[in-house]
């Protein structure tokens, strides 16, 4: 019978904590960049100008239809040779996951924008708004509200995807767990603890997301006094 012993894992709790911080760092960076870039890609793809729509469509389709690990390897091993710039694991991960999530966010944005009734555009145009003004003041605020559940789901997917950085030796939570497992010869305890940490953090995020969705679902519909 195997005797479980978590003390070696606890002794390395600092490494795991640092790993978790690094995981959150990659997730946060990719989320922030991905949202901004995703909105830009969505607006380009919706544009009537082919010169804007086609490249955006290309980026979106390529990053949605290739495996993220292949993208990560390409950005880490291939891109530095092409552009002649040294890539740190963090930079490669941030770039890959920013673009990758922006491709998904772009489709979320696009779906939200096209879901807004034509009458809203017309009413905005009828009081003399320009296209960008109508988008910013009338369409996006309504669209974003509808997109929140999809955003949350994507953000959680992103956090799970960031574990791939461990394969290019970025010291995220999974990489830290792997190090500890090899050092202490306690892979069972270490990987179990790592899995539980992910489970707790991601579950907490999805619970928070669900609450936020409910809040947004009711706000704006109520009367302000």
């Amino acid at each position: 019978m195997y005797v479980w012993d978590f003390t070696p894992v606890l002794a390395n709790a600092g490494l795991l904590a640092q790993g978790l911080v690094n995981t959150l760092k990659v997730t946060g960076t990719a989320l922030a960049c991905g949202l901004v870039l995703g909105l830009a890609l969505a607006l380009m793809r919706l544009s009537r100008r082919r010169l804007a729509a086609w490249p955006a469509g290309f980026v979106i389709e390529v990053f949605r239809t290739t495996p993220p690990l292949v993208q990560l390897f390409w950005f880490f091993f291939a891109l530095p040779l092409i552009i002649g710039v040294e890539m740190t694991p963090f930079l490669a991960a941030a770039v890959t996951f920013s673009i990758q999530s922006s491709a998904f966010f772009a489709e979320v944005f696009r779906g939200g924008i096209v879901s807004i009734e034509r009458g809203q555009w017309e009413a905005a145009r009828a009081i003399g708004m320009t296209q960008p003004q109508a988008m910013r003041r009338i369409i996006l605020p309504q669209a974003v509200k509808r997109m929140i559940p999809a955003f949350m789901e994507r953000a959680i997917e992103l956090m799970k995807t960031t574990t791939l950085v461990a394969t290019i030796a970025y010291a995220d939570l999974l990489f830290a767990a792997n190090e500890i497992a090899q050092k202490t010869f306690r892979p069972l305890e270490t990987f179990t603890v790592a899995a539980l940490i992910y489970f707790v953090v991601i579950t907490a995020f999805s619970l928070a997301a669900r609450r936020l969705e409910r809040r947004f679902a009711v706000s704006g519909e109520t009367t302000v006094h």
Binding site: Y2, M159, K160, T161, T163, L164, A166, T167, L174, A177, N178, A181, P187, L188, T190, F191, T192, A194, A195, Y198, F199, I202, T203, S206
Partner: peptide, 17 residues
């Protein structure tokens, strides 16, 4: 609510024990 890569590594390194 856990990353699939963590699951794979768990089955590979932890489960055999």
């Amino acid at each position: 609510n856990t990353p699939v890569l963590v699951q794979i590594l768990w089955f590979y390194f932890a489960l055999p024990i």
